[in-house]
Design a binder for these strands. Structure first.
Lengths: 201, 201
DNA sequence: AACGTAACACTAACGGTTAGTGTTTCGGAA
DNA sequence: TTCCGAAACACTAACCGTTAGTGTTACGTT
């Protein structure tokens, strides 16, 4: 992770990035559906199979930073200030992520996503993966042996918050609104004794 | 809807049912991935295109009663007893739906679904559609002009409840647990004045 | 310098899905 | 009753995402 990467890994990363950039450019130019994998491969000057060795599917070309988002959610919990409840930390992170999505530079991408059923579906399944990771992280943070139903529900609610806010007219307000609901839900769920305003979670 | 259906419509429904039954039988026999659309079409004695004129995708063959489930959710709200809050009604309905999924006769189907990523993804996107319909129904029930963020969040939470409970060790308890969270979330969301125990919602 | 491995290329195919083009069958209007 | 239009259905042929199989390079390592 911290060792200097060799030429091989640099080349691999470069190829991956070239493919992703090419794909995104073509998608935005001609439309997602109008561009085939063969087009992307030709334009990036690689073989079709090489595309699929770097990306699991055509949709994954668009959500290139998938894992970054997942890590951000998990780290918002694990790396938060000591004694801070995790929900406010999550709220901040979700708000930042939504802001990033609705920013001017990313807006064309998300307009494309909204226009394509396949991409929307992929986005949702991605979000579910993130929610599962978040549930695991929260359960671990609480010292639970396994991810309880309450943890998983809360994590899904957070994912829902992201999805709803991204589409809302006023994303910031939507995040706050849904997170108020989530905080109440979490308070109602936990048999952990302490109310949400105090330490422990 | 209530007029006696003509021969044409009966034939169409019969063909649809024959295709669905054949598909499900083959899927359970040989496995979802091992059965192709061409196999289903041949066994049901129809053309491949006919299959796709009745079902939008291969996955839709498995979730044949998709719209039934959607209607049940919506009707749980619209047809509930007067003055009853809608959340308890929804909870009953979700509990019944989960019971039906985990029943002995339906169990093989859901085992197949759990084994196939494609089917799981389809199930989730189906659930999102149901959630949207539910959000619209609830907004209408509350006399709102449009589906607010709170309504949509709550509807997604209900969908999450279904998803989580279906996979939980103890489905009934899981439904109760998540619905306790949802009731608290809803109470926190609404600026409607009345608490959840009273009339109005 | 030689070896093992991982990235990449190429062909060919598989399977879901659709377009295009008829053909039959039925319900309703004339 | 007769005819017309629409809808169900069939058939071919493809498109496109995806993968298996098989090499071929290029790199890190010993």
């Amino acid at each position: 992770m911290t060792v200097p990467p060799g030429r091989r890994e640099r080349k691999k990363a470069a190829t991956r990035q070239r493919i992703a950039d090419t794909a995104l450019r073509l998608f935005l130019d001609r439309g997602y559906d109008a561009v085939g994998i063969r087009d992307v491969a030709a334009e990036a000057d690689v073989a079709v199979t090489t595309v699929f060795s770097h990306f699991a599917s055509k949709e994954a070309l668009v959500f290139e930073q998938d894992e970054d988002f997942e890590q951000r959610l998990v780290r918002a919990v694990t790396d938060r200030a000591p004694h801070e409840p995790f929900l406010p930390a999550l709220r901040r992170e979700v708000r930042a992520m939504v802001r990033h999505c609705t920013g001017d530079d990313a807006a064309p991408i998300w307009r494309m996503v909204d226009a394509s059923p396949a991409l929307r579906q992929y986005e949702e399944s991605m979000r579910l993966r993130h929610a599962e990771s978040l549930a695991v992280a929260v359960a671990a943070d609480l010292g639970l042996a396994r991810t309880t139903t309450a943890c998983r529900a809360m994590a899904r609610f957070v994912a829902d918050a992201h999805a709803l806010a991204r589409e809302a007219d006023d994303p910031d307000t939507a995040v706050d609104e849904v997170f108020r609901m989530i905080e109440a839900a979490w308070d109602a769920a936990r048999p952990f004794g302490a109310p949400s305003g105090t330490a422990g979670s």
